[in-house]
Structure formats: C-alpha cells, structure tokens
Amino acid sequence: MAPMTLDELRKLRESKRREFAQRTEGEGRTEIVIGMGTCGIAAGAKAAFSAIVDQVALHGLENVVVKQTGCMGLCAAEPTVEVVRPGMPGVVYGRVDEEVGRQIVDRHLLKGELLGEHLFDKPAADLLRPASGRA
C-alpha cells in the first residue's frame, strides 16, 4: 500500500463518520481509559490500546472515547483498562491483552456484560488520595 496522504485520511474519515452516524445516534458517551505508565507499557498496554481502538472502529462506535493515564498502582494487574459506560458501573479491568481488549468491546460495550474474570474494583488503597499530577 502506498503511504496515505492526509487528504485521503480526511476523506476516509468523513465517509466512515457518515456511515457510522446512524448506529450511534442517541446513545451516551463511553470512556475507555488505558493505563500507560511504565508498568502498563511493559505489560503490553500498547497492544491493548491498539486492539481496543481497532475493535471499536470495526463496530463503528463513534461515541467511544479513548483516554490514557499513568499508573494507578495496580502494577501487578497491568495492562489495566477502565471502562465507564452509560447505565453501568465504572470498572477497572486488569491483565488486558489484545484478546481481552476485543472482548471488552464485544461484551461490555456492545452487550452490557461485565468480564468478571478480569475485573478489579478501584485503584490500590495507597493511591486513593489527591495527587498533584497533571489533571
């Protein structure tokens, strides 16, 4: 494939957006937050990020926003992915590889199911205090 120009990228985006718009109309916004601290990166957060954005794009879910954050203290459970979907409790998943990332999209986002085997509650207790990091 020849390298894509920015203008080709813009046209592709516009056509996909029109195609997807009808599928996502009227739904609230889902946020996916991927831990990209050193621990997350070392454990494969980039592969999880890549799999999740591709799977969301495959389903054309325009209302899914992906954010990244640093370490939330669950280093042993990295890569961690927090999901906040309208109508469901916000949860943190641990040990999210590419396959689990795709399942988060297929099951949690599309079907409203929690992936119990990868579920964590909240950040580690010693980190639940105000920090002065970047907002």
Partner: peptide, 25 residues
C-alpha cells in the same frame, strides 16, 4: 485536522492505519 478529533476510538484507529501505511513504506 484531517480526522476532526483524536479522541474517539475510530479516529485513533484511522490515525494508526495512516501511520502504518507510512511505516510500511
């Protein structure tokens, strides 16, 4: 500017594809 935003997963997936096409080259 090309994608309109870089927050939604579909936009990020396309950014990745764009970069991949250049990386392949």
């Amino acid at each position: 500017a090309a994608l309109g935003e870089l927050r939604s997963a579909p936009a990020l997936s396309m950014a990745k594809d764009w970069l991949a096409s250049h990386e392949e080259a």
